[in-house]
């Protein structure tokens, strides 16, 4: 694998009691590329995500994030909110986690919390209403408006997030993650529950994030049409271990991958492929 890496996962292992969810997993994600993590249900994809984004502490292994300026951060040592704040890794959730009782715009303002906290002098200056904070808030609203335009939710800005349709909520969650201005965007099944038209719009959105903003994306996805269309690199997992990786074309033709998805032996899969071609 060539090119500049943003994320290096090295020998990652995660155990829950006696169960090994992820075993010695190593892969890398390249900068300004879309890397997909795929595999059948229960393969351990979301566990890998939770390790990268700090929700789990890995049992073993290293996760290294390299920033644009060459700064390296060991993600397995940071915990909790610091991964989002300091390492600039943003994520979305498999079951959408918006702030349903807040408006769409407020959701995007909360995402810019750390920037706004600094601008408000950790609340004290903001309380007396210094102009510097008002400017910062205006910039934050501008950034939010910009993202609302990109995900075509501008006319819903003042509606409660909980009132949005399912597909709109998915897009809002991506916009909210992007409002933290991340270096690496981790998406956990962004196309789940979307119809064909919405999936196509999602693919377009993710490609524009990569091409126009140069944000690196790591995604878990079951919708193969999305994965095959937009991924630059695919890592396939099954039962907690990596079984294949490569370009979409390489992965699609890999008998091990087909076997994992069909739940059959490698030989049977080979037979299926041969009879099909």
């Amino acid at each position: 694998m060539s090119g500049e890496r943003i994320l290096d996962v090295d020998q990652l292992t995660m155990r829950f009691g006696g169960i090994v969810a992820v075993q010695d997993l190593s892969f890398a994600a390249e900068r300004r590329k879309i890397t997909a993590l795929i595999g059948p249900n229960g393969a351990g994809k979301t566990t890998v995500f939770n390790c990268i984004t700090g929700f789990y502490k890995p049992t073993g292994g290293a996760i290294r994030l390299t920033h644009d300026d060459g700064r390296e951060i060991a993600l397995e040592r940071l915990n909790d909110f610091r991964i989002a704040k300091q390492a600039k890794v943003a994520r979305t959730f498999q079951n959408i986690r918006l702030f349903p009782g807040m408006t769409v715009l407020e959701n995007l303002m909360v995402a810019q919390h750390n920037m706004l906290m600094r601008a408000s002098g950790f609340t004290l200056l903001g309380l007396v209403g210094v102009p510097a904070y008002r400017d910062a808030e205006k910039r934050a609203i501008d950034l939010a408006t910009d993202w609302l335009k990109r995900v075509s939710l501008l006319d819903r800005a003042d509606d409660a997030a909980g009132n949005l349709a399912y597909g709109d909520q998915r897009r809002l969650e991506i916009a909210r993650a992007m409002c933290t201005e991340p270096a690496l965007l981790c998406l956990d099944e962004p196309a789940a529950g979307l119809n064909a038209r919405e999936s196509a719009a999602l693919s377009e959105l993710l490609l524009s994030i990569r091409n126009e903003l140069g944000t690196s994306i790591l995604l878990i996805e079951h919708d193969m049409s999305v994965v095959m269309e937009i991924s630059d690199h695919i890592v396939v997992m099954d039962h907690g271990v990596k079984i294949a990786q490569g370009t979409p074309r390489e992965v699609r033709d890999d008998p091990k991958v087909i076997a994992a998805y069909l739940g059959a032996d490698e030989e049977e899969a080979m037979a299926v492929m041969e009879s099909g071609s």
Binding site: F55, F81, I83, A84, F93, F99, M102, A111, T180
Partner: peptide, 11 residues
């Protein structure tokens, strides 16, 4: 509203 989402946003 959602503590987990807050943590994911760096709060």
């Amino acid at each position: 509203e959602d503590e987990v989402a807050c943590r994911a946003l760096g709060i």
